[in-house]
Amino acid sequence: MAEVSKEDSEVVTKIKTEPESAVDLEARILQLCESIPDGINDAIIQNTMPQCDATQRVMAVNRLLSMGKLDLIKIGNKLLYKLKTADAASNQLKGSDHQEKQIYQLIDESKNMGIWMRDIRLKSGLPMSQVQKTLKVLESKKLIKAVNCVNAAKKKVYMLYDVEPDRSLTGGAWYSNQDFESEFVDILNQQCFKFLQQKLAQSREGDLEPTAKRNASYASSTEIWKFICELGISKVKLEVEDIETIMNTLIYDGKVEFTVVPNGDGSQLKIYRAVVSVVPTSGFVRTPCGVCPVFNDCYEDWDISPSNCQYMNDWLSF
């Protein structure tokens, strides 16, 4: 702080001529901190706000620090001011012990990906029981929350209370409250296929040359995305990537195939088309035996045999 006052002796007069309210100054410093999240030193404050004199700045900074809105960080021999996130939280942390602050810090750092309890323990070096207790306290204060991971049912991660969890944790558009919405996926799956099927039918009707005919049956993921958006069946906003995920399920359903073509701007475009299976329904399932639940127990002259088979009886009764 001593440094600060020494340096700025020349500008004192200027500032005096335009006195600013202390509150204004504090707000501006906070703004500045927000725009430079890595932290600011006194020189930066001085440069952006030359109208303030050293005492004013010192007073403002000290006030902010005492309010817990700013953090003072020492890097090398330089001091940095950094904005403390979640003001309310830090207010509530007031009066909490060191452990709570430390854990809160760790959770804060994990941002929207959250942090696993085990990692908290490892990073903080605190015993498990302590961590558990502290997490409970923080949770009850509504400072942090536990979020269930969609891809691992038992895995719980902690993050700040008002942070929106990452897509990879929630599963994106397909999950509501960690529940997989399979009906939604099914409907999208059907609609996408319908769209491609129509394209295929249209292409087959037209009197086109074979290559053109095939090309006409393709649709890019963007086209399909637009179609789905226009249908308005989704309450959630879907991205093109979401549609590509749906298209993958259709590929796995054997109903669609895709290929990649170069887009005009050098990027690659995924295009999809509906396909027909090479064989009609296999003859295997056209006999009762093909779908028989006791197929493996069926022997000549046994309790279950082709001659006394009830499924055959049903199948052969006219």
Partner: peptide, 11 residues
Amino acid sequence: QPLTQQVHPLQ
């Protein structure tokens, strides 16, 4: 249980 698929009609 068990599977309940119906027999497909013959072609």
